[in-house]
Design a protein around this nucleic acid. Structure first.
Lengths: 326, 326
DNA sequence: AGCCGTTGGTAGAACGATATAGTAGAACGA
DNA sequence: TCGTTCTACTATATCGTTCTACCAACGGCT
């Protein structure tokens, strides 16, 4: 068009206050500029940070983010995904990290595009064509544990929630890798997860860590250090230590994984393994966008590197001077 | 219809895998089962909790929640609201609590329904027809401060961020009310907010509190207690105390407002004023739904009561034994 | 004069639902 | 038998776009 014509049109748009109806546009084109985001619970700070990262990346691409709290319940997850699909939302990011993505199978067949957040490469075997984005969870678990070993710890506990997630398994494997490498025998009594009765709602992840850590710290030969499945669990472990009159890191060293903002605020500041959340969020949205542009292609898995962030919750083990009461 | 016919129809639905296109439905009916949620940043745990509460309430009503992080920037806020409106989303919940809602004016005229979260009754004067939901912020500030006074404190500081929000003003007024009631003179040097250069991104609220509290705690006649604008600020204040070698609550008592989960995890557990977040979220969604049903009616303002939650971050003032270094 | 490309403008079908109207047959009571 | 109501079904317009096709006007070219 001639520049002059463009100007005239824009003038008319301005005068009439015309705004195109996206709804009508969607009906015609089939494309909706929204993506779904399924997290266990945004009330959990680490998922909040994740939601924020995804939103930043989505905004850059002109996509709105529709939020769903799955509470790690496959039924809820499926229902949300189905509703998203009904709304015309074709791409969703799922961060609940379950082993089995089967509950999405028929939706994927109906055109749903899935990007798993935090699922790692372990999806390879599954026959669902699902892209994924993740930090190298095994390495994260390894780095956390290795740090404790390097500080001189030998009895190192591991706390997590109950939920059977890929990331949990991978991080735990990293923990075992590090112990094996240092030729420290694996001791099942040092690995504790919160009781199943606790439920799977991630809103209370820290409470899970607290309960699990308490169990570890009250046994006879208690560990001198604890690696947490994530920062919330580690923070819970710190709370458990306090509950028992133990001082961190003097009596117990604790490391987390994720590097949430909170870790810098608590006392002592939490030593942790950094997860590049912004980059992960961006990668997830990028994968989705790529699928919007062209459907086909083998599943892609983006795995980013974690790195250790040393703060003050872990130090060399002190001499055992007394045993925690209760 | 006859039951038999219903069955036949449902069978056909099942066989064909028919799902009604909500997009098409919207085009015809004009109604979209989604609401917008604008928070400063979900990465901030208190907004995360709020988003979760809203989502729970929305889910009950079959509404999806579309998320926007405003970063307290009116421009961003407006842009999000406009985009929501283009998507057909008519109702949004805004929780940035600015004094001036003017940037939404034309959108409201175009049909946008606004519910202000955390704005209190102070909206009454404004000519925008906006419902609101809020805890009684003045009372919250009062309760926090009153608790410190009851414990015996006389020099009580107040820390907050820079942003000029209604809730900030109200809580600060509550702080002043309590002091006046106890006939303690107001001392401006005891009120500190983070420097404006810090930006308004609530993601770092705790850091704001830390900076502001540090300023308070390093002055000559430092306060024996600090009330935080919210829990994140209070947590930041705790961190500042630690930075200076002060022990909470022995050397400084600290109370927050909000009652976020985190408050129970830190050491010492945070004494705070509870904000009934679930009820607030539900009230906000209820107001929106009511407007969907019938447009008209004077603005309604729902104000819920806060209450004190005593934990361990505040105690009677000890004797001043030493002065913080640096 | 006839042909071409550029530009502006018009017209109609389609997307998938809702809304309204209308038809036809069955069932019912008077 | 007639009129009424219930039920099942059909038909058409509409929401506000996008897409495709087509037409008209204009200048420059052969």
């Amino acid at each position: 068009m001639r520049p002059e014509t463009v100007r005239r049109i824009e003038e008319a748009i301005g005068q009439l206050g015309y705004r195109p109806s996206l709804t009508a546009r969607h009906l015609k084109t089939g494309f909706v500029p929204m993506i779904g985001l399924l997290v266990p619970s945004v009330a959990n700070p680490s998922h909040g940070a994740m939601a924020r990262a995804v939103e930043v990346a989505a905004e850059e691409r002109g996509l709105q983010v529709v939020l769903g709290n799955s509470l790690r319940d496959p039924q809820r997850e499926r229902r949300y995904a189905a509703e998203f699909l009904d709304l015309g939302i074709r791409g969703i990011i799922v961060s609940s990290s379950p082993f089995d993505l089967g509950h999405f199978a028929d939706l994927v067949r109906r055109g749903l595009i899935l990007v798993a957040f935090d699922l790692g490469a372990t999806l390879e075997g599954v026959d669902l064509p699902v892209d994924s984005v993740s930090v190298d969870n095994r390495k994260a678990g390894y780095l956390a544990t290795k740090h404790l070993i390097d500080l001189g710890h030998r009895r190192i506990g591991y706390v997590s929630g109950v939920t059977a997630t890929v990331s949990r398994r991978e991080r735990h494997r990293g923990y075992e890798d590090a112990l094996r490498e240092a030729q420290i025998p694996l001791d099942p009594s040092l690995v504790s997860s919160s009781p199943a009765a606790f439920g799977f709602d991630d809103t209370n992840a820290a409470e899970h860590g607290r309960v699990a850590a308490k169990q570890l710290l009250t046994q006879d030969d208690r560990p001198s250090a604890i690696a947490g499945f994530n920062d919330m669990h580690a923070l819970g472990a710190c709370a458990a230590a306090r509950d028992l009159g133990l001082v961190v890191p003097r009596d117990v060293s604790i490391v987390g994984i994720d590097d949430i903002i909170l870790g810098t605020l608590v006392d002592p500041p939490l030593t942790t393994v950094h997860q590049p959340m912004d980059a992960l969020g961006k990668a997830a949205v990028d994968l989705l966008s790529a699928r919007f542009a062209e459907e086909s292609g083998a599943p892609r898995h983006i795995i980013l590197d974690p790195h250790l962030v040393v703060r003050a919750s872990a130090s060399a083990p002190g001499r055992r001077t007394w045993v925690a009461s209760s």
